[in-house]
Amino acid sequence: MSDAASAPAVRAAIGDSEFDRDTALVPRGPGVHDIDLSAGWTIMNAVNGGYLLAVIGRALGQTLPHADPFTISAHYLTASRPGPAVVRTETVRTGRTLSTGQASLVQYDDDGTEVERIRVLASYGDLDALPDDVRTTAEPPAMPPLEQCVGAEDGPAPGSVSSPIADRLRLRLDPSTLGWAVGAPSGRGEMRAWFALADGRDADPLSLLLAVDALPPTAFEIGLSGWVPTVEMTVHVRRRPAPGPLRVSITTRNLAGGFLEEDAEVWDSDDRLVAQSRQLARVRLG
């Protein structure tokens, strides 16, 4: 199937897409923001960690004098669920080129007890003010063209990715990282895919926070199954992405003691490394 055939007929604009609506917050007062976490971004009944990071990232961007996330580190304390939530933000330091803030996302149990879901520390700046000088040995991931990769439209999706979030993304997975989907995982901790939002909205720094956590977990290709909850994740946004689909490459080199790391790189259509992340996640063994 060609890219043109799989792309939406009408492309949503940044600021007017499902992703923007579902990450929109209602200010209640200084540093306090209300949101209704959408069930559309869940996987295995839990709200996706990248979507949650984008929600908090938007709140911090509305709080700090700089708009763009440069680095954002999140500790996931308890699993979030769809429904009302509160994001509290605080400015820690304001500088000329960078400002730093912290944030917490909380929800309430049925008895009214407040439960903190995520705590974040982040630094923001202006991506458009960065110099053009790039010196790197990093290279884009070796992947087949988009039309040679596998999307949900090519056949029934494996049960482990048949979640509401899959309907909001246009993922086309590298066939060499899809052995798990046919019961023959490679044993290598690798996952690669072309990434875009289903409604055609182009990527921006906020959606990069989603992209780093949107692929199936590398644990599947190692031969494990089930939920792989994130313990901590740090994202570095390096550039404002060019329009067009992104390439996301995730690798795991070490699984030990029931924990693994996932290192992600996100490349844009101009072959620029636009985001990096590392997360520590728990896995169920046995």
Rank of each mutant, 00 (worst) to 15 (best):
M1C: 12
D3H: 15
D3K: 13
A4M: 08
A5M: 12
A5H: 15
S6W: 11
V10W: 13
G15Q: 05
F19D: 00
R21W: 06
P30G: 04
V32A: 13
H33W: 11
T42P: 10
N48I: 03
G50W: 02
G50T: 03
Y51P: 01
L53C: 11
A54L: 02
I56S: 05
R58W: 04
A59W: 06
A59I: 00
L60G: 07
L60W: 07
L60V: 02
L64V: 07
H66D: 02
D68I: 11
F70P: 00
I72E: 08
H75I: 05
T78D: 11
A79T: 15
P84H: 09
V86F: 02
E90D: 14
V92T: 15
R93Q: 10
D109Y: 08
D111Y: 10
D111P: 01
I118L: 09
L121H: 13
G125T: 03
L127G: 07
A129F: 04
V134N: 12
E139Y: 06
P141Y: 05
P141E: 01
A142I: 15
A142G: 12
P144T: 09
C149A: 12
V150E: 10
P156E: 15
A157L: 09
A157N: 10
G159M: 10
S160E: 12
V161I: 15
V161D: 09
D167I: 02
D167N: 13
L169K: 09
L169P: 15
L171H: 15
S176F: 03
V182N: 09
V182W: 08
G187T: 02
G189F: 01
G189Y: 00
E190Y: 08
M191D: 04
R192I: 01
L206Y: 10
S207F: 00
A211Q: 05
D213V: 03
L215S: 12
P216L: 03
P217Q: 09
T218Q: 02
A219L: 05
L224I: 06
V228W: 06
P229W: 01
V231Q: 07
E232V: 14
T234Q: 04
R238G: 05
P241C: 09
V248W: 11
S249A: 14
I250S: 15
N254Q: 12
E261I: 01
E262H: 06
W267K: 12
Q276H: 12
R278G: 04
A281H: 05
A281T: 00
R282I: 06
R284P: 02
L285D: 00
